[in-house]
Design a protein around this nucleic acid. Structure first.
Length: 888
DNA sequence: GAGCACTGC
């Protein structure tokens, strides 16, 4: 390990430091060579390992339709108190936002802000003003509720009519005001107290929508579609292929690809581009020289299902000529010529094959989604194309973005392929809705009462909102009794157990209507058939990383226009549809951004930067990004890598850094894994790393058994902190022989544990790959905690006089998360896994450490003086330890 | 005393 003494000033030590650097670089290159040799000798066979099987089953579960009996839905629970809670939370959020802006302006007013920071502040201000408008609107609650016209029809192909234009008609304001007054007067006398079986209940609460535009489909709905569903089933594969919109373009497309090295393909969903283009290329001989055609997808399920379809069309066994490669599962062989993979997998492949030498064509599909991986791939493939003139690049995207991609790839030509979609009518509300949950419920009932059969999809921001909406809706439906047809309410979000997720795919019984309450998962990740109506409140939860404080925030923000249109498009997959937006046309036009901020500008880039360094890209600040990440985020990542010893003082990758890059984890975690050998606890640390990777989704808290769940959780609490609690959970699950029953009894999410097991297996393999021995045998937790500290010495907080914690690096006030085992302990020094801002600044996953360890594991980073304890007294609050900890 | 959108390696 190379450690530079900061005091070295004599020429002797300068020389020896220089010598050490050269030696390290030499060792690093030898190490890389060994890795390469390992890769070359490894023969890839089509085998289904145990891990593969588990991963496959999990994914298959999601794909398959399940026909379990429908459970009776969540019991009605404290509806009123929850709504009050939500209202309060909203108020709190607004107050916080306000305080945030004041703080920001106070703290950084003198500082020269970057353009981005200014934008961020402006953005916050705008959010605040929107929130306040909503608050004001709420005071007039019910006032702006109108009636949905009974005869609301699809309407003609509409020109764009501004709502405010309509309001300019004579007396419209006056009439509106009168109508509102009348409404509110009616309400006061009104039917809140009316018996449930009054049909008026429905009408009283209605929202008026205005249709402003129609999103054109590409299907001619007046004529009968050329191919009906039942006819389709009868068609053989060849005929189906010929019926796809991409088919007539086959020859032109091949010619264009031959002529240009980079081609942007603009094609809507349903054009068949993902399945057909690789086959065309194969038939045209692009794989004749022993090279492959690669195609990346942002999602695992897509890579699997598309490759399965293509294998079927080509009449080959999946994994032979056609295969896929995703994490935990490589289903390819030496015969594979068409390879589908996730974008992250290709990103990883760059480490062992930086020139993509085995590919003749690389297709980056769904580029408009702008995932972190595709964004980095853009820069990498653009670079490769310069010296590999035989490599063809296809960038495939939905509409709108194609020009931007073309520009980035030196004005590459754009090839347009039509899609197959039905038109969707877009409706807006006339006035902003204060409480969009309530507005959703009202809209659902309106649609149910007045519109022809067809399923409804509602976009909400999270589990909590979905549960609230579900309860309110169910309650209302119950009160309406048999006045209406059956309404089947189904929630869907990523953390919902898979068997409950599968229910959304059950066919709707005749004469009933299904309403699916979904998070953003339904925007791209899964497709539900027979959706005719979409309700879009216009919000989503978004993660943001602040590199100034190293903190993540998850907050509800307005969606972008692109996202709104994606949501609307979900209504037009099987028939002409309707989308009800719970915001005004004016808000759509003036308040929504055109595009969602790409991921690369919103997240911590530690791992991505290390990876690029490992690929030999030294000048990251000038890397060719389609949209560059904030300068500060890159600087922070580089700083951390230097502190972790992954980069030397020349900014070059060290041997340590080269090893760290092999792990698909954050650099701090990679460092922790590597340090574990020294502290004789690699088995334990690998488990901890795997458990930390499954994103705090280990403990399950069903609403009706919160007390039991919390008691169960406390039984795992370890006296020295959460990392060790997680270790206990995993080890006990292991002892139960990976039992589902055990998980159920202990309120542990089985799916998360299964995932942790997969991750662990992968990490163990990688440890061997980077030549680290798996050692174990520590009896107490000190060594384990020291190993964690060796990776996370950046994340230290110290208890200050007021009973608050301050981070050592930023002197920022933070708290231990109430779910932590150390919540009531308050040790003097703690190490945290992550800092998140929800309602306050919280440290999540915390362990107790001793300050002297910091000098041991990071002497280059800490000075003894910083770590002196001025008071040696214990803090007064350590009266008793919470719960039966220290079980092991 | 909180309350974790969604992917991916």
């Amino acid at each position: 390990m190379s450690r530079r003494r900061s005091k070295s000033s004599s020429s002797d030590s300068v020389d020896s430091a220089e010598e050490e650097r050269r030696r390290d670089i030499k060792e690093r290159d030898e190490f890389s060579k060994r890795l390469k040799e390992k890769d070359d000798t490894k023969t890839r066979k089509v085998v289904e390992s145990k891990t593969n099987k588990r991963a496959y089953e999990e994914a298959a579960k999601r794909l398959k339709l399940q026909h379990d009996a429908r459970d009776k839905l969540i019991p009605k629970l404290r509806v009123q108190s929850r709504r009050e809670y939500l209202a309060k939370r909203k108020e709190d959020k607004v107050a916080e936002l306000e305080a945030d802006i004041v703080d920001d302006e106070y703290l950084f007013d003198e500082v020269k802000l970057t353009k981005r920071e200014k934008e961020e502040r402006e953005h916050k201000k705008r959010l605040l003003s929107i929130a306040k408008q909503h608050e004001e609107a709420r005071e007039l609650e019910r006032v702006q509720r109108y009636h949905m016209p009974k005869d609301m029809k699809t309407g003609e192909k509409g020109e764009y009519v501004e709502v405010d234009e309509r309001e300019k008609q004579p007396n419209s304001e006056q009439k509106k005001w009168e109508a509102e007054q009348l409404q509110s007067a009616l309400f006061k006398f009104g039917s809140r107290d009316v018996k449930p079986d009054e049909y008026d209940l429905l009408l009283e609460d209605e929202i008026e929508f205005v249709q402003v535009l129609r999103m054109d489909g590409s299907k001619d709905i007046d004529r009968k579609p050329e191919v009906t569903e039942s006819e389709k089933k009868k068609m053989n594969i060849e005929e189906t292929k010929k019926s796809l919109p991409v088919y007539p373009f086959r020859d032109d497309l091949i010619a264009a690809i031959r002529e240009h090295q980079v081609l942007i393909i603009e094609g809507e969903t349903g054009s068949g581009k993902t399945t057909q283009i690789p086959q065309y290329l194969y038939e045209a001989g692009f794989t004749k020289d022993g090279k492959k055609i690669g195609c990346t997808q942002p999602r695992r399920v897509a890579a699997m299902s598309v490759s399965a379809r293509v294998a079927e069309e080509m009449g080959v066994k999946l994994g032979n000529e056609v295969g896929y490669s995703i994490r935990f599962e490589d289903c390819t062989s030496e015969r594979t010529v068409l390879k589908y993979m996730t974008d992250g997998t290709l990103h990883r492949e760059f480490l062992s094959e930086p020139d993509l030498g085995s590919y003749s064509v690389m297709i980056i599909d769904e580029a408009h989604e702008r995932t972190l991986h595709t964004d980095i791939l853009f820069g990498l493939v653009k670079d490769i194309a310069r010296f590999r003139s035989d490599l063809k690049l296809l960038i495939s995207s939905a509409t709108l973005d194609a020009e931007k991609f073309s520009e980035f790839f030196d004005d590459a030509p754009i090839f347009r392929i039509p899609g197959r979609r039905y038109p969707v009518d877009i409706y807006y509300t006339k006035a902003p809705e204060a409480d969009y949950i309530d507005a959703c419920v009202v809209s659902i009932l309106q649609i149910h009462a007045t519109q022809p059969l067809g399923d409804i999809l509602v976009f909400l921001t999270g589990q909590e909102e979905i549960e609230t909406c579900h309860e309110i809706l169910q309650d209302r439906v119950k009160r309406l009794g048999s006045k209406l047809r059956e309404l089947i309410i189904l929630p869907i979000y990523a953390n919902l157990p898979s068997d409950m997720q599968a229910k959304i795919f059950d066919p709707t019984p005749p004469n009933a209507r299904k309403v699916v309450l979904a998070t953003n998962i339904a925007e791209t990740s899964l497709t539900i058939d027979n959706i005719i109506y979409v309700i879009d409140p216009g919000f989503a939860k978004q993660n943001n990383f602040n590199s100034r404080t190293g903190m993540e925030t998850l907050m509800v923000v307005p969606i972008s226009k692109a996202s709104a249109n994606q949501r609307a498009g979900r209504a037009g997959r099987v028939a002409p549809g309707k989308c009800f937006r719970l915001y005004t046309a004016w808000a759509y036009k003036h308040e929504l951004e055109d595009n969602t901020v790409p991921e690369i500008q919103r997240i911590n880039l530690g791992n991505a930067v290390l990876m690029l360094k490992a690929l030999g890209i030294n000048d990251l600040l000038h890397f060719d990004f389609l949209d560059p990440p904030p300068h500060e985020t890159l600087v922070l990542a580089l700083e951390q890598l230097y502190a972790l010893g992954a980069l030397n003082h020349h900014g070059e990758l060290t041997k340590m850094g080269r090893r760290m890059a092999e792990f698909p984890v954050d650099p701090m975690m990679a460092k922790m894994l590597l340090a574990s050998e020294k502290y004789k606890c690699s088995e334990e640390i690998v488990t901890i790393a795997a458990m930390l990777s499954v994103n705090s989704a280990v403990f399950y808290r069903p609403k009706d058994k919160i007390i039991h769940a919390d008691t169960a959780r406390k039984n795992f609490n370890h006296i020295h902190g959460d990392h060790l609690s997680l270790l206990q959970v995993y080890n006990q699950w292991c002892e139960s022989d990976y039992s589902t029953q055990w998980c159920y009894e202990n309120f542990i999410q089985y799916r998360s544990m299964k995932r942790a097991r997969d991750v662990r297996e992968q990490l163990v393999n990688l440890m061997q790959r980077v030549e680290i021995d798996m050692v174990s045998g520590v009896t107490e937790s000190i060594n384990i905690r020291k190993a964690v500290t060796a990776g996370y010495f950046y994340h230290i907080a110290k208890l200050s006089k007021g009973g608050n914690y301050k981070t050592v690096k930023h002197n920022q006030t933070v708290m231990i998360h109430p779910n932590s085992a150390l919540f009531e302990e308050l040790p003097r020094w703690v190490l945290y896994h992550e800092l998140v801002f929800t309602t306050r600044e919280f440290m999540r996953q915390v362990i107790e450490i001793e300050s002297k360890w910091l000098l041991e594991v990071a002497p280059h980073y800490y000075k003894p003086k910083e770590l002196e304890d001025s008071t040696n007294k214990k803090m007064p609050k350590t009266v008793g330890r919470a719960g039966p900890s220290d079980a092991h």
